[in-house]
Design a protein around this nucleic acid. Sequence first.
DNA 1: GTTGAGCGTT
Length: 231
Amino acid sequence: MSHFGRSGPPDISDTYSLLILNITFRTTADDLFPLFDKYGKVVDIFIPKDRRTGDSRGFAFVRYKYADEAQKAVDRLDGRVVDGREITVQFAKYGPNAERIHKGRIVESAPRSGHRSRSRSPRRRHRDDHYRDRDYRRSRSRSHDRYERDRYRGKDKDSRRRSRSRSASPDYSKGRGRGRYDDDRRSVSRSISASPARCSPSPRKSTSPRKSPPRGESPDRRSRDGRSPSR
DNA sequence: GTTGAGCGTT
């Protein structure tokens, strides 16, 4: 029975948004409403959800009617354990009413209710309010870092190994420095030399001259041949 | 069914 965020922002004329972080993925607006409503007049609660899956993203926005109440809620609910998890309550930086806060009405470090020592410093990051972060975060979420990292590591290792292989030929580099043509010639020479080797097993050729050259063998051979001398 | 730094819908 919560029409919060059902049809967009209801009335954000005089509301102050709070950002609730570190909430469980199962926590809904209904669960937060009573908790936050206890400390003030909650106008609306909005929990961003994934468009595809519709799952909660782990944070919510609570709009208060009055700033002092919002500040109070921040001081009282920040660090409160909800559903077995410690939530983080702080003023929302961006949003429809964020400008109001920035205008001078409310300052992050100017709580009229008093100065709470326990108010953790809000990590005021630079203006990196780009959707890029969101995508990045989303991407990082759900996906297993371990898995991806492992995969990357394997790739990296392979790449490094190959790199080393390449790097382990300084002599070649030196000798090739001036004799590039030589290298080319040598390549050709090798090509010719390998020519017989490639065509030496003729048997299969006669078996199927052009219909189906043992699938995979032909391209594989070519691929390797073209890559080895080239690099 | 999992996850965990962050900033939002018509």
